[in-house]
């Protein structure tokens, strides 16, 4: 579903990602771990085409992201949860969801039905539909951001540190929902600092250190790995 192949990017003259390759198969949940400044958000930006890879390839559903452009990704079946949620703060919850729904260009879906589905997944959204999203609490915004990624029934969801800034209780709740998304057969790339939680729900993981993939493997193996234990656990 998602393939990055030997991607290099730099910020000015400073190299950011070096030869990063990763893949997320159909219906597979994969996490990308790494300390602050390792290049996790750069990876997110390279995947969604907001940052141009200097060399290498990013393919989503078989299409080169550089050719089809950021604007086409939603209709290829990708939902995004950007770092810091990035809801449109003065737009209402419904308007935020509407934009994502329209972006998916799925004629078989109906907006009202999808809203209902999201409200079942995130009960607190229901009575907040006409509230400006910027006036909601961080936890509620996190749920809306996830609903925004899901409302167009994507086949792949890419999340950039979605749990950042949430209380431990909310993080648990959040990842229970993420696990349900996985169980529905959607492919998920979870970019996270919180290694233990991420590895507990993902099948495989990659560790990004200073712009390079330093480690990769099945979650169970990574959880036992000394580097990871040393860095995180």
């Amino acid at each position: 579903m998602l393939e990055m192949e030997r991607v290099n990017t730099s910020y000015g003259t400073v190299p950011m990602l070096r030869e990063v390759s990763l893949r997320v198969g159909e219906g597979e949940m994969v996490c990308l771990l790494g300390p602050n400044g390792a290049g996790k958000s750069t990876t997110f930006n390279a995947i969604c085409g907001l940052l141009r890879a200097e060399s290498g390839q990013v393919r989503i559903a078989g299409r080169d992201v550089r050719d089809c452009g950021t604007e086409a990704l939603a209709s290829l079946g990708v939902g995004f949860v950007p770092e810091g949620r990035r809801l449109f703060p003065t737009l209402t919850v419904r308007e935020n969801l509407r934009l994502a729904f329209d972006a998916a260009r799925a004629p078989a879906l109906e907006f009202a039905a999808q809203i209902e589905k999201m409200a079942q997944l995130f009960p607190r959204i229901r009575e907040r539909l006409d509230q400006r999203s910027g006036t909601m609490s961080g936890g509620e915004q996190a749920m809306v951001a996830l609903a925004r990624a899901l409302i167009g029934e994507p086949r792949l969801v890419v999340m950039d540190e979605p749990s950042l800034g949430l209380s431990p209780k909310l993080i648990d709740e959040y990842f229970q929902i993420v696990a349900r998304i996985r169980d529905q057969g959607k492919a998920v790339l979870l970019i996270e600092q919180n290694a233990e939680t991420a590895l507990s729900i993902a099948e495989r993981g990659y560790l990004l250190v200073r712009g390079r993939i330093a480690l990769q493997g099945a979650s169970a193996d990574l959880l036992r790995d000394d580097t990871i234990r040393h860095m995180y656990l």
């Binding site: 969604c48 907001l50 950021t70 604007e71 086409a72 990704l73 939603a74 209709s75 995004f80 950007p82 990035r86 449109f88 703060p89 003065t90 737009l91 308007e95 509407r98 934009l99 994502a100 329209d102 972006a103 260009r105």
Partner: peptide
Amino acid sequence: LRIRAVAEDRAVARLMA
């Protein structure tokens, strides 16, 4: 709606096609 979205966050607007 799209004008307001772009006014707030161009990058995320692009993710919304």
